[in-house]
């Protein structure tokens, strides 16, 4: 039996790169979907608002694990090759979009009413209002909760291991099953790597939050 050694740790650290990559994909994809949802949620058209809130209700009421299975097998029956990276990327985009959409909606709504009125008075159209007046202010409000949500994304990428995406958690299982049998030590190392990824983000989120509230 091979004992847990430095090579295993290096192997786990390499796998962590995939965790980071998947987190970035989730964040980028989720941002695009989330921005669209947030804008739909504050739309003047009732149907658009209902559509976006329906999407958010469904995604937030379903476990991420089931979303992963649905996209993995769903892509399969649509005739695409079952690539775990694609299925995982798609699921995390769907998932992160719903949560980021809610965060941004809150931030857009938190921009004072008078800003809308002032930009109306200046004769800006709706698009200009968003781009030049509302969104720049909303983004500043949104940064602390977004960084906080990044922690959730990084942690949740561990679920992609279930559909066979080889990232940190899956690699931990592989190391545990094939080479050694010291699950306590291996998963403690895996947990430590996740902690090293997440803790700085948590600290940053808290610091940004304090900074955002300092002026008030």
């Amino acid at each position: 039996m091979i004992k847990l050694n430095a090579n295993h740790i290096l192997y786990l650290l390499q796998a962590a790169e995939w965790t980071v990559l998947l987190s970035l994909i989730a964040f980028a994809g989720g941002s695009v979907v989330g921005l669209m949802l947030a804008l739909l949620r504050v739309s003047k058209v009732g149907f658009m608002r209902a559509l976006a809130s329906g999407y958010i209700q469904i995604v937030q009421g379903t476990p991420l694990l089931i979303v992963l299975f649905l996209s993995y097998f769903g892509l399969g029956i649509l005739g695409y090759k079952l690539d775990p990276l694609v299925a995982a990327g798609l699921s995390f985009t769907i998932y992160a979009g719903a949560f980021l959409g809610e965060i941004w909606r809150g931030c857009i709504e938190a921009v004072p009413r008078t800003q809308w009125e002032a930009s109306d008075c200046l004769g800006l159209n709706r698009f200009q209002q968003y781009v030049y007046v509302i969104l720049p202010q909303a983004v500043r409000l949104a940064i602390p909760p977004m960084v906080g949500f990044m922690v959730q994304i990084v942690k949740n990428t561990s679920l992609a291991s279930v559909i066979g995406f080889v990232e940190l958690a899956r690699t931990g299982q592989i190391v545990n099953n094939s080479t050694t049998f010291e699950p306590f030590a291996i998963f403690a190392v895996v947990a430590a790597i996740y902690f090293a990824l997440c803790y700085p983000l948590s600290v940053a989120a808290r610091a940004l939050e304090r900074k955002a509230h300092a002026g008030r």
Binding site: N156, L159, A169, P183, F184, A188, A191, Y199
Partner: peptide, 23 residues
């Protein structure tokens, strides 16, 4: 609180189930 909130539930489950049984 910090340890639990900054590690995935999946790994926590593995540590309890596989880790404790190996001990």
């Amino acid at each position: 609180v910090e340890l639990i909130r900054n590690t995935p539930l999946l790994i926590q489950i593995f540590i309890v189930y596989f880790g404790l049984s190996s001990l």
